[in-house]
C-alpha cells in the first residue's frame, strides 16, 4: 500500500467512525440520565410547630370540650378525695384516672401527692406550697414556685419555646408557651419520639454500607 492509499483507508475509517459516533450521539446510546429514585415527601408532623401536648389554657383558647376538667362531675365538693399508697409507698392512681394520669413527677417518687399541686379543698384550683391559689391556666407560676432557675430562664425566654417575633413590638408579638404546653405535669420528662427520616444521598448507590452505628 502506498502512502496515498493508506491515507484513504485512514480517512475512510475515520468517516465511518464519525458516522457511527453521530448515530450513537443521536440515539443517546450511552450515559443517559437515569430517572432519580423517588424520595417520599416528609410527613407534615415533622415540619409543623405543633406541641407535644395541649394544655388546659390551649384547650380553653381553641374552645375545646373541657368537660374532662369538671372535677365535681364525679367528686364531692368540700370532701378531699382519699390518697392511697401501695406497700412501696407509690401512689395508687384510682382507676377512673388511670387512663390519663401516670404519676412520675420528680425522681425517687418525691412528688407523689396530688395535693402538692392541687388544692384539696377545691379540685378545680391549684395551690402553691405557700398556699396561694391559682387557676388551672395559671399553672406556670405553680411550676415556678419549685423550679426556680428554670422559671427564671423561662421568664427571660431562655427556657422553653417561643414563636412569632424576636423583634417584639405592638402588632408583632412574641408568643410564649407555658410549662404544661410541653410537659405533662404528672410526668414532666419529655417522652422519646420517632425522629424524622434521615437524609438521602445524592448518589444512592453509595449509601449501602450505612449502618445505624459505626
Amino acid at each position: 500500500m502506498n502512502q496515498n492509499t493508506k491515507i484513504t483507508v485512514v480517512v475512510g475509517a475515520l468517516a465511518v467512525a464519525f458516522l457511527s459516533l453521530a448515530a450513537g450521539f443521536w440515539a443517546n446510546a450511552w450515559g443517559h440520565q437515569e430517572a432519580r429514585e423517588e424520595i417520599p415527601l416528609v410527613d407534615s408532623q415533622f415540619n409543623t410547630p405543633d406541641t407535644f401536648r395541649q394544655s388546659y389554657a390551649e384547650l380553653m383558647r381553641i374552645k375545646a370540650d373541657l368537660s374532662d376538667f369538671d372535677c365535681y362531675a364525679c367528686h364531692d365538693k368540700g370532701k378531699p378525695p382519699p390518697i392511697r399508697y401501695d406497700k412501696n409507698h407509690n401512689i395508687v392512681v384510682p382507676q377512673e384516672h388511670a387512663g390519663s394520669i401516670v404519676m412520675a413527677h420528680g425522681s425517687h417518687d418525691r412528688n407523689n401527692l396530688c395535693f402538692n399541686c392541687h388544692d384539696e379543698q377545691n379540685l378545680e384550683l391549684l395551690q402553691t406550697r405557700d398556699g396561694k391559689q391559682l387557676k388551672l391556666f395559671e399553672s406556670t407560676r405553680l411550676c415556678g414556685s419549685c423550679h426556680g432557675p428554670t422559671y427564671r430562664d423561662w421568664d427571660a425566654g431562655v427556657h422553653g419555646r417561643t414563636g412569632g417575633f424576636w423583634d417584639a413590638k405592638p402588632n408583632q408579638e412574641r408568643t410564649r408557651l407555658n410549662c404544661v404546653d410541653c410537659h405533662n405535669p404528672h410526668k414532666p420528662k419529655i417522652p422519646g419520639r420517632h425522629p424524622a427520616p434521615p437524609p438521602h444521598m445524592l448518589h444512592p448507590v453509595r449509601q449501602v454500607e450505612h449502618a445505624t452505628t459505626h
Binding site: Q3, L14, A17, F18
Partner: peptide
Amino acid sequence: GDWRYYAWMGILTVLILLGINA
C-alpha cells in the same frame, strides 16, 4: 501529514467528540 498523522489526529478527534457530547 502522513497516514499515521491522520490516524492519530482522527483518534483524538473521536475522543474529543465523545467529550463534547458528555
